[in-house]
Amino acid sequence: MDYYLQQLVIGLSLGMVYALVAIGFTLIFGVLNVVNFAHGEIYTIGAFAGLLLFVSFAPPLVVVLLVVLAVGALTGVGLERFAFKPFRRFNDEATLKSRAMREATLMSSLALSIVAREGIELVFGSQFQSLPLQHMLNSPIKIGPVTIVDGDLIIFGTSFLMLAGLQFVLKHTSVGLSIRAVSNNALGARYVGIDTDRTIAWTFAVGSGMGAVAGILVGLYYGAIFPAMGFTPGIKAFVAMVMGGLSSIPGAVICALIIGISEALSSIFVSSVWQDLVAYAFLIITLIFFPRGIFGGARERV
C-alpha cells in the first residue's frame, strides 16, 4: 500500500511538471491556433540557465527560479519573433487559421528546436551535466508511511504558485485580458484596438517562462540535465493539451496530472522503460476516440 502511495506522490510531481509545460502549449495554441514545437527546448534552456547560475554564483533557489522564469520568457519572445511572426504577414481571419500557416509554423518551430538542441549539444556535449549535489532537491522527508523528497514539495509549491499567478494574470491584468480576448476572437480583438502582436508576444513570454521553470525543477529533482531532455516532456505536455481539449488550461492541467500519475503507476506493473508508451497511447486514443478532448467542448473539425 505504501508503495502505491509513494508512486502516487511521484506521479503527482511528474504530472505537475507536465502541467507547467502543458500550460505554455495551451496558451499559445489558444491564442495562435498553432503548435509550438520548440516548447520542449524552452524547458531545456530553462534547465541549462539554472545550471549555469548554480555553478557560477550558487544563489538561493528562489533567485534561480526567478531568473529562469525571466530567461524563459525572453527566449519565448525571441522564438515568437523568429519562428511565428514572419508567417503572420496577412492578418485576415482566413490566413490566421489557415492550414498552410499552421503547418509552416509547426515546421519553423520544429526547425528552431533542432537548432537550439544541437546548439546546446555543441557547447555542452550530449551527456548528462553534473549538478553539484548540494543543489539537488532530493533530501528525504518522511510523512507517515510515505517518504518523499523536498523536491516533491518544492515542485508542488512552485507549480501551485505559478498556476495561481497565471490565473491572476489572466483574470485581473490588462495583459491577461488581451490574451483572453485574442484567444477568443483574434480579429474582434484587433477591431477593439488590442495590439495582437504584443499580446501574442506576451503569451509566449508567460507560457515559455513557466516551461523554463519546469525544466530547472525537473533538472534539480532528477539531477538530469542534458540537451535532449525537453523532447519527451514536450510531447507529454502536448498530449495533455490535446486530451484537455486544446485550449482549456484547467483541462490541460488535469490531464497532465492524469498522465503523470498513470506513468508512475504503470511502473508498478511493467518495467519503467515502457512508461513513455503511456502518454503516446493516451495521445492516439484521444485523437481517435475523443477528438474534442476527454472533457468534450467545442472545437473545429480535427
Binding site: 510531447i235 503516446y280 495521445l283 492516439i284 485523437l287
Partner: peptide
C-alpha cells in the same frame, strides 16, 4: 485518416515514438 493537418501530424509523431 479522419484527422486533418497538424492533428494527423501529431498522431504520426506519436506512433513513430511508440
Amino acid at each position: 485518416m479522419r484527422l486533418v493537418s497538424i492533428y494527423f501530424a501529431v498522431a504520426t509523431l506519436g506512433i513513430g515514438q511508440m
